[in-house]
Structures are given as structure tokens and as C-alpha cells.
Amino acid sequence: MTTTRRLNPEKLRLSKWTAAAPRNKEKHFLVVALGRATPDGPVETVTLEAVYTGRQQELPWRALCDASQWLQGWA
């Protein structure tokens, strides 16, 4: 069973997330950037940065709504 949460994509910058299934010791992440097709367009993607390694990954912001993959905050 997958739970979904409601998020406002405009308020995701600098939010904290925990990977439900950590890989390579990367468990805690911070949203460091919001991606838009145009400067005034809607948020389409987020860039997450792993706190432990500093590695960045870009994904659709709606992926954060899937509680089976991402937990809000640092657990």
C-alpha cells in the first residue's frame, strides 16, 4: 500500500527528506534547487543533495509524494 501526501512544490526548497531505502550510506537529503521549464513556470523537478556524500540527483517533485520511497524530515 502506497500512501501519498500533499505537497506545495513552491515550498520544497531547503526541505529535508529521508530515503525509505538508503543506498551507499545516502539516507538524508536536502532539496537544493527547484527545476522549471521557464522562469515563471510551475516547478517540475527538484534537485536533492545527499548530506553524507554531497551527491546530487534530480527527480520529478511528485516522486516525494510517494511515502514508500521518501519520508519527510530526517528520521
Rank of each mutant, 00 (worst) to 15 (best):
M1W: 09
M1L: 14
T2E: 13
T2K: 13
T3H: 13
T3W: 12
T4H: 12
R5N: 00
R6D: 13
L7T: 01
P9F: 06
E10C: 08
E10T: 14
K11A: 15
L12Y: 04
R13V: 10
R13H: 14
L14M: 10
S15Y: 10
K16G: 10
W17D: 09
T18M: 03
A19I: 07
A19T: 07
A20E: 14
A21S: 14
P22F: 02
P22L: 06
R23L: 11
R23K: 12
R23M: 10
N24Q: 09
K25M: 08
K25Y: 13
K25R: 14
E26W: 04
K27P: 01
K27A: 03
H28T: 11
H28I: 08
F29I: 00
F29Q: 01
L30P: 10
V31S: 01
V31N: 02
V32S: 08
V32C: 01
A33C: 13
L34A: 07
L34N: 07
G35F: 05
G35W: 00
G35T: 02
R36A: 02
A37F: 11
T38I: 09
T38A: 13
T38C: 07
P39R: 11
P39G: 04
D40N: 14
D40K: 15
G41I: 04
P42D: 14
V43F: 08
V43T: 03
E44V: 03
V46M: 01
T47Y: 06
T47Q: 03
T47F: 05
L48T: 00
E49R: 15
E49W: 00
V51G: 05
V51N: 00
V51M: 15
Y52D: 14
Y52P: 02
T53N: 08
T53G: 04
G54H: 08
G54S: 02
G54E: 08
R55C: 06
Q56T: 14
Q57N: 10
E58T: 15
E58Q: 15
L59R: 02
W61T: 01
W61P: 05
R62F: 15
A63H: 12
A63Y: 06
L64G: 09
D66W: 07
A67H: 06
A67W: 09
S68T: 13
W70Q: 04
L71C: 05
Q72S: 04
Q72D: 09
G73N: 04
W74R: 06
W74I: 01
W74K: 01
A75F: 12
